[in-house]
């Protein structure tokens, strides 16, 4: 068991070290988050629409689109110079590779999710409502479910000749329930509803993330086998 965890840790560390050296994906996602905030500012007539009312949906849309930007490139570097074969030939089981990759992506996306929340708070003067902790928890669970699905499908799409263009078509329909639950939590907390009202949705977000992780861990080996 501890060997398995070590293998996962090794993959996570490898991915994060790579990212630390290049800072490509985190920079792209972070810049996207800020720029999306700016664009939303100009696409909303704030005299008619209160940002408070629509921010929940926009935050989740920014998370999904920005996340695809980073997660879509999960296998890009390794596919370029054949390093993926090396990773897959290592003694680590395929599901450890998947979990490592997914958690590394989560470590990148979760700060971006917080940045998105911060950007919206700053740009639109949002009131974060009754319980910001629940907001962060919901965004965390959402980010986890998102990376769990999109890492699996990033492996799928990088194996096709359509590449990253295929990724949104594959994951958006699957992500709809997650966005519905997530927006439900965020929107309600932001208007100051009690926490009890959103606990059901938070649980569903957690269940979604767990099922996505389990499915990804089981199915990943079929995606990367030769």
């Amino acid at each position: 068991m501890s060997l398995y965890l070590d293998q996962i840790r090794a993959i996570i560390w490898k991915d994060l070290l790579l990212e630390l050296r290049t800072r490509e994906r985190i920079a792209a996602m972070g810049a996207f988050a800020v720029l999306a905030g700016v664009l939303f500012n100009y696409s909303l007539d704030q005299a008619r629409v209160a940002p408070q009312d629509v921010a929940a949906g926009l935050i989740w849309m920014t998370l999904v689109f920005g996340g695809l930007l980073g997660v879509g490139r999960t296998f890009y570097l390794e596919a370029q110079d054949g390093a993926m074969e090396g990773v897959l030939m290592s003694p680590a089981p395929k599901d450890a590779v998947y979990l490592g990759k997914t958690l590394a992506n989560f470590a990148l996306l979760f700060p971006v999710a917080l940045l998105i929340l911060g950007v919206f708070w700053l740009f639109f003067g949002l009131d974060l409502g009754s319980n910001p902790g629940i907001l962060v928890l919901a965004l965390g669970l959402g980010a986890l479910g998102f990376v769990a699905l999109s890492t699996l499908f990033a492996a799928v799409s990088s194996g096709t000749h359509m590449g990253e263009t295929l990724l949104p078509i594959l994951v958006f329909p699957l992500l709809v329930p997650m966005v519905v639950y997530g927006v439900g939590v965020t929107g309600r907390i932001m208007v100051g509803r009690p926490v009890e009202e959103v606990l059901g949705n938070v649980r569903l977000l957690a269940a979604f993330a767990l099922v996505a992780l389990a499915a990804g861990a089981v199915l990943f080996r079929f995606v990367v086998e030769d």
Binding site: V156, G159, M162, L166, L170, P173, P177, L219
Partner: peptide, 29 residues
Amino acid sequence: MVRSSTENPEKGKRFAAVVAIVGALDIPF
């Protein structure tokens, strides 16, 4: 789309199967 966009048809079949299974798991959600 997945099925028809791989050079190796066997790979396309596996990818498509993964899409179908995850899709079915997503239905309850």
